Structures are given as structure tokens and as C-alpha cells.
Computed example of a mutant assay.
Amino acid sequence: MVDITPTPADLKINPRNLRFHQDGGMPDRWWLNGDPVATAFFNALSCTFPKGEKFFMDSVRHYRGAVGPELQQQIAAFIAQEAVHSREHVTFNKLASDHGYPVDILEARTGHVLRAVRQRSPVRQLAATCALEHFTAILAHQFLKSGASDLAGAPKETVKLWSWHAMEEIEHKSVTFDTFLSVTKHMSRPDATRCGYWQ
């Protein structure tokens, strides 16, 4: 039996319409201490976000009318947060592209993968979203736990962007899983679990 810790009753998800890198903020191609590998890691991760966040929003939005009022509000806040994340990473990616990073290639690869996933049933798309949001929350937790040390030496605006994004990922991490539990409650747990598999 899987032990599922309930979402805190006082969970509040607060969309924040913040903007970063309005005046540039990435003066060098290798903006993370001149390190091309470290810079490429964050650039590549950011390249997955605009299309990835859109996929997450769509997979949860599909079930918004099938859950209770409280979860509906959380889904609306989740979508609002993810929309702003996407917008800000479009800005970040444009700066990386201006410095010669192959953003278009990585965004195209992300799109190719997501087009395949979108051929699956809505509940399987939601299961995939649960898994990806879980991994994202793990990365976000470790990033913040370290005091954003992975970005030590990066431009201040870049540190602010990634810290804000990480904080909001932790804030809304339960929404997709709670939605999955709600829409699969008529299934046996083994059947619901199998939604996460592609075979």
C-alpha cells in the first residue's frame, strides 16, 4: 500500500506577476562564472520550459471541471503561475539565443517529445505531468536548500528568476497529483498507477 501524505489544508498558491531581465542581465555568453558546461545546463533546462509549462497547463486544465471547487481554485492558480514561468523563460531563452546558444534546436526537440505524449489519453498526459512536476519539485527543493549555490556568481536577475521559479514549483507541487487522485478515484489503484506507463 502506498502511503500518500495529504496536501496541507491551508495550502495557498499565490500567482506572482513578476518580470526579470528587463534590462538584459546576461552580459556574457557563459554567464555562470564563465563556465560553458554550467551555463549550458541551465540554458538547456530553460529551453524545456515554455513548451513544457504549456503541456502541464493543458493536461490539468482538461480536468478542471471534473474536480471540486477548492481544487478548481488551486488549478487556476497553478495555471496562472505556470503561464508566468513560461513567459519569463521565453525572455531568458531569447537572451541565451542572442549569445549564440542553440535555443531553437532544443525547443524543437522538446516540442517533438511533447507531440508524441499528446497522442496519449488525457489521463496519461496528466500522469506524465505528475511525474515531471514531482521531479521539478525535487530539483527546486535542492536548489533552494543550497541557498541557490548552484548559481553562485551568476547575474543577480538570473538568480532571482530561478529562485522565484523554484519557490513556486514547491508551492504548487501537489496540484497535479491531487488532480490525478481525484479523476482516477473510480479506478483501482493498480489501474490508476498503470496510467503512468506508455505500454
Results as ranks from 00 to 15, higher is better:
C47Q: 08
N17C: 01
G34L: 10
N93H: 06
F78R: 02
R109L: 13
S121N: 11
P190N: 00
N17E: 14
T129M: 02
G68N: 10
R87L: 08
L18D: 09
A131I: 12
F143Q: 11
D191A: 15
L161I: 09
T136F: 11
F41G: 05
G111Y: 01
T110N: 12
F41P: 04
L181R: 08
R124S: 15
H112M: 13
G34A: 10
P27M: 02
R87K: 15
V103S: 04
C195S: 11
G147A: 05
H89Q: 04
F92S: 05
F20P: 02
G25A: 08
F41T: 14
T158N: 08
V90L: 14
H112I: 13
H172P: 05
A116Y: 10
I75T: 04
G34M: 03
K145H: 10
A44E: 08
R194W: 02
G24A: 09
K185A: 14
L32E: 04
S59V: 05
Q72C: 07
A96H: 01
D150M: 14
F42W: 14
F49E: 07
E70W: 08
A108H: 04
T7A: 06
D35N: 15
D23H: 15
L11S: 10
T91F: 09
P102W: 09
K94A: 10
R64G: 01
R61M: 04
N93F: 00
T184N: 03
A83T: 07
V60R: 00
Q73Y: 08
L106W: 15
D35A: 01
K173M: 14
F135I: 07
V90F: 11
Q125I: 01
N14T: 15
L32W: 08
K156D: 15
M187F: 14
P27L: 04
I105W: 11
N33C: 15
K54H: 11
C47V: 04
Q73G: 13
Y63Q: 02
E169C: 00
F42I: 04
T158H: 07
A40Y: 05
T7C: 12
F49D: 05
T39V: 07
K185Q: 13
Q72Y: 00
S97F: 09
A44I: 13
V123T: 13
T91I: 08
R120K: 10
W30L: 06
I79G: 02
A137F: 12
A127Y: 03
I138T: 09
L71E: 09
G111M: 02
W162D: 03
T176W: 02
S163G: 07
S174Q: 03
V60M: 09
L132R: 09
V183W: 00
K185F: 11
V183G: 01
V2P: 07
L161Y: 04
A80H: 05
P50E: 11
P8F: 01
K51G: 14
A80I: 00
V117Y: 06
N43H: 12
P102Y: 14
A152D: 14
D178A: 07
S86W: 03
H89C: 04
S149Q: 11
A44F: 11
L132S: 09
E70N: 09
L144E: 11
V60E: 13
I170N: 06
R115C: 12
L32P: 05
L45Y: 06
A76D: 15
W164E: 03
Q125N: 10
A9C: 07
R118Y: 10
